[in-house]
């Protein structure tokens, strides 16, 4: 397979639960060696899509090829090329971390000896060597997630699926997982990850697909999506609601007021310039701010913007 061939192709994927569609004509393409981030709110169909792509669930309709192989007809061949980090932990809680990794290595048909050395390698890589002999049920949530990730890397997969890999992790755990994903991609692995955090998609993904109601509603690089949704924002929180109107009138850009939170916010293009301009404008108008923050649009905002466009 050359680098230009897609590692994942999804066409017209449909899946219904009872009479409610979870996937409603999903289309995706992921080029080999790149990272696709799938962004979507609860119930958008992210997990359903990942479970179909990783052979756990049969689609009602549509075509899915992973590493050039049809997941429906040649599931076993797909399974030997993929790694899966599901939304929920997929490890044996009663066994130790090392026992888990060794067992998965054997089931990947590495043979007993290589399964053992691979387990030790991965424990070391994820900083779990010291706790390797403890039962997983005694692990913290972050340790469990790391072990789960280690388990999905046993066979050095060509294609890796990560379903909300960092949900529930602290910032350090999140950075660790991000680093692990980056080093995998550096080695040529193709990664498809789902997330609810724009930040995460931004950090890791070459391209982002935003999905809602089981369909892609926007696709592109992080920059492309952000520019579609008005880019970064500046939030100014005031001491006094009475000053909201005045603040809104002096601030640059497309300004919104939020009375309940005593907040004025504007979409901006250049972070530094916007911050300086805003501070100067407020000072000139004699308005005292409680808090000023420049931030990325939230998933909510990207989302509201995109669904507004979709409806229009």
């Amino acid at each position: 397979m050359s680098d230009l061939d897609p590692a994942i192709v999804v066409e017209g994927l449909r899946k219904r639960y009872k009479d409610k569609p979870a996937l409603d004509g999903l289309d995706l393409t992921v080029r080999a060696g790149t990272v696709l981030g799938i962004l979507g709110p609860n119930g958008a169909g992210k997990t359903t899509a990942v479970r179909i792509m990783s052979t756990l669930l049969r689609p009602d309709e549509g075509r899915v090829e992973v590493a050039g192989i049809d997941v429906r007809t040649r599931a076993d061949e797909v399974r030997s090329r993929i790694g899966l980090l599901g939304q929920n932990a997929a490890v044996d809680e009663e066994l130790s971390g090392r026992q888990n990794l060794e067992m998965f290595g054997r089931l990947h048909h590495l043979g007993a000896r290589r399964a053992g050395t691979r387990a030790d390698e991965l424990l070391a890589q994820f900083g779990l060597t010291d706790t390797g002999s403890k039962a997983i049920k005694q692990y913290s949530g972050g340790m469990r997630r790391r072990l789960d990730l280690a388990a999905s890397l046993i066979s050095r997969p060509q294609v890796l699926f990560l379903d909300e890999p960092t949900t529930g992790l602290d910032p350090r755990g999140r950075t660790e997982v991000w680093n692990a994903v980056r080093s995998l991609v550096g080695g040529g692995t193709t990664v498809l990850l789902t997330t609810q955090y724009l930040e995460e998609a931004d950090q890791l993904a070459d391209r982002i697909a935003v999905i809602n109601h089981g369909r892609v509603i926007a696709e592109g690089t992080a920059d492309e999506l952000k520019s579609r949704t008005g880019g970064d924002r500046i939030d100014v929180v005031l001491h006094d609601t009475a000053q909201l109107d005045r603040a809104a009138s002096v601030m640059p850009g497309d300004v919104h007021q939020d009375r309940d939170r005593r907040m004025v916010s504007a979409s901006i293009s250049n972070r530094m310039a916007a911050l300086t301009e805003t501070v100067q404008a407020l000072q000139a108008a004699g308005i005292d701010a409680e808090d000023i923050a420049v931030r990325r649009p939230t998933l909510d905002e990207v989302f509201m913007q995109l669904t507004k466009e979709e409806a229009a």
């Binding site: 048909h109 390698e121 890589q125 066979s155 050095r156 997969p157 060509q158 080695g187 692995t189």
Partner: peptide, 14 residues
């Protein structure tokens, strides 16, 4: 977590 990976898929059953 700094080790790099090479993507030599472990060929399971030759």
């Amino acid at each position: 977590m700094t080790a790099t990976h090479s993507v030599t898929t472990v060929e399971a059953n030759p």
